[in-house]
Amino acid sequence: MLCLYNFIRTTGTLKKQPVYVWMWFTGFIFFLITYLESYLWLIPYFRNNIVNDLTIQWKSYGSMVGSWNMLIYGCGIYLMDKISGTQTYSYSKTGFAIYFLGLFNLMFNWGHHIYTVPTHGYIKHVSYLVSMTELLLLGRIIFLWRRQMKQNKKHIHQPGFRFYAAADFWIFLTLVLAIAMSIPAINVYTHGTHITVAHTMGATIGINTFLLLAVVFDQLNPLIRKIKNFHRYLLPGFRICNISLFIFWISLIVAGIMKAWWQVHRPEVPFSTMMISLRPYFMMFMITGVTLTAGMWMMLLPVVKQYFMHGMHAKKRMELLYKKRNASLSTY
């Protein structure tokens, strides 16, 4: 609430604001609404009906993730305008069209999680149609791919841009998987498997984390420039992160496919036997998780170290100025 209050007070008005301001505003609003909605199970009317409770829980948390994504994607568009040096996109009709499509998905896209819940059919039908609108986003990414490759060469020297380009790649992969999971005939197999986890990890790490890192590295660019040979840490860490995340993601998808085949076609096989057969993929999942963390620290540790060193130097300068001030006052 305090964050929303501060945002409204700082912004003043929503008239003639860029699209990322609208994304931040609606992200704050819907996050508060969905957070309150997720606690409706405390009321007996909702808690005593298992179907309604499941539906509301999936709806609230699905939309809550969409709200968080609104906040992060708004930061991404802000950074994109800052790197390009113009605000053409953030005030364009295309930018606001994509915003409203994302808002539409935020409110209604959650229904593919409850295909197996015996709730009202129209909820599932509407959610399926809304999920398919993501094909427009996918088509746009493919259409603009060649132009983005040219921009990569132009802005690759900026530390935050590498993360932005990586997030764009993971948006493509996550959208392909999300659209596939939203098809009922495929969702029957993927629901409750590690494919859902792969979708979540691809979105959380590949998109959200990389976009946040892009914004942080851009804001700390003056400090990063003071780090000697920073690219010796950035490039290897960046490559280790993305390669590890891709193998991490694939291992979950393969484990999910095998579990989906078991739960539909081989229910007579014990659950423990099936899980033991997935052990190689879990081992790969664990190993790549460790290398992914190591790659992250390769990039972040020099920045964190420089940030604290800068803070310590600033503190010493303030103490020195304070001593000089006291010394000059004592002479009078």
Rank of each mutant, 00 (worst) to 15 (best):
G95F: 07
L79E: 02
G12V: 09
F246H: 01
L14I: 12
I276H: 07
F238L: 14
W249Q: 07
T116F: 03
R232P: 00
L32V: 02
L138R: 02
M181W: 03
L101T: 01
G85F: 13
L177P: 03
S272Q: 08
L175W: 00
M274K: 00
L54P: 09
I247V: 10
I77E: 09
G66R: 08
L103K: 00
I98P: 03
M107P: 06
G76W: 00
G27Q: 00
Y73P: 11
G121K: 04
M80W: 08
G85I: 11
G192Y: 02
G102I: 05
V269P: 04
P118M: 12
T331M: 15
Y35M: 10
K154P: 02
A294Y: 11
K82A: 12
V264F: 06
I141V: 11
I114T: 06
Y89R: 05
V290N: 03
M149C: 08
F282H: 13
L106R: 02
A185L: 06
T133C: 13
V303Y: 06
G12I: 02
H231D: 09
Y322E: 13
Y5K: 14
L173A: 03
M107H: 10
M318L: 06
I72C: 09
L79H: 14
Y122Q: 09
W24Q: 04
L2W: 08
G62H: 10
Q87D: 02
T11G: 09
Y91I: 08
I224K: 01
W58P: 07
W22R: 14
I142G: 09
S244Y: 07
L223C: 03
T190W: 02
F100L: 08
T94G: 01
H194I: 00
G192W: 01
T116H: 07
I276L: 10
K324T: 08
K82R: 09
Y189C: 00
W22Y: 15
I250F: 06
W262D: 01
C3W: 14
S251Y: 06
G85W: 13
S182Q: 03
W170M: 05
Q148W: 15
K226S: 14
G111C: 12
T119F: 08
Q151C: 11
S272M: 06
K228G: 13
F100E: 01
W58E: 14
M149F: 12
Y45P: 07
Y122K: 03
V130M: 07
F238Y: 09
P18F: 06
A185S: 10
P159I: 02
I257F: 06
L138C: 06
H313V: 08
I179E: 02
F172C: 00
V197T: 14
Y89A: 05
D168H: 10
L177I: 04
W68V: 15
V290W: 10
Y189M: 02
Y73D: 13
